[in-house]
Design a protein around this nucleic acid. Sequence first.
DNA 1: TTAAATGCAAAGCTTTTGCAATACT
DNA 2: AGTATTGCAAAAGCTTTGCATTTAA
Lengths: 135, 135
Amino acid sequence: MDGTMTAAALLNTVRSHGLRVSSARRCVLEALLAADRPLTAEEIAGDGDLASVYRNLETLEAIGVVRHVHLGHGPGRYALAARSGGWATCEACGCSTPLEPAALHEIRRVVLETAGFDAGFGHFPIVGRCRNCQA
Amino acid sequence: MDGTMTAAALLNTVRSHGLRVSSARRCVLEALLAADRPLTAEEIAGDGDLASVYRNLETLEAIGVVRHVHLGHGPGRYALAARSGGWATCEACGCSTPLEPAALHEIRRVVLETAGFDAGFGHFPIVGRCRNCQA
DNA sequence: TTAAATGCAAAGCTTTTGCAATACT
DNA sequence: AGTATTGCAAAAGCTTTGCATTTAA
């Protein structure tokens, strides 16, 4: 669901929703495909038009191809939905790391059990202190 | 740590940090003291000056009296730190509810165990589906 | 051909900053 | 008296919107 993802597959998904494959849209997907972390709209746009990037991100999020995450303060960040598991951000050093699937699963289980919420951590991260920054 | 909190105690904390008790500062604290949920800067300001409210919130957060939380999109929200436990927000209905202390404790324990993070949920909420909104 | 999407410009919303005037200690 | 704080105005940062033009299907 990640290493095997191809640009062609993503573009097929786009077409399957009746959307066109424009060059701006292709650029957004290629930027996200090449990235190993969530990107800001500005990083995705590069020299291109920011408004088009934002519109495309919104469209792509609506069809489930993209997700956006707020890893801290500052601009939102975007990643391919297929790569969007949970995140944890350290409030001391500012590092952000993906949650291991096993950890995510166990945390979700406990949140459901204790708080009744079916939670993901793909939109807001878990905020706390990473191992290095604990007193 | 909450029902027993008084304006006088908060103002003493302010003075103990060498800060003055101005009317704008007093208004901010009284608004937060009267609220039963985190407020936006605009809600706190009312007719008063927004810039002063933001500056006061920043100052009060620096001395540990106030915390700010992002319950979803839209403006940040502020509450007395003594009242700021964890939050959970439903992505379907938009409701936000405080986490029960027991649930918060258990969730923190599991996050520490599985992800190595000493986490709170007082800045970003846990996002998911509340009991009412689960399929 | 024609509706979707673009690129530019302008506006919107939240938050921050500069600065002279005010008021707490 | 002296300085922290205020209130106003302006700017900054991120995102959205309007609209004429381009372009994928």
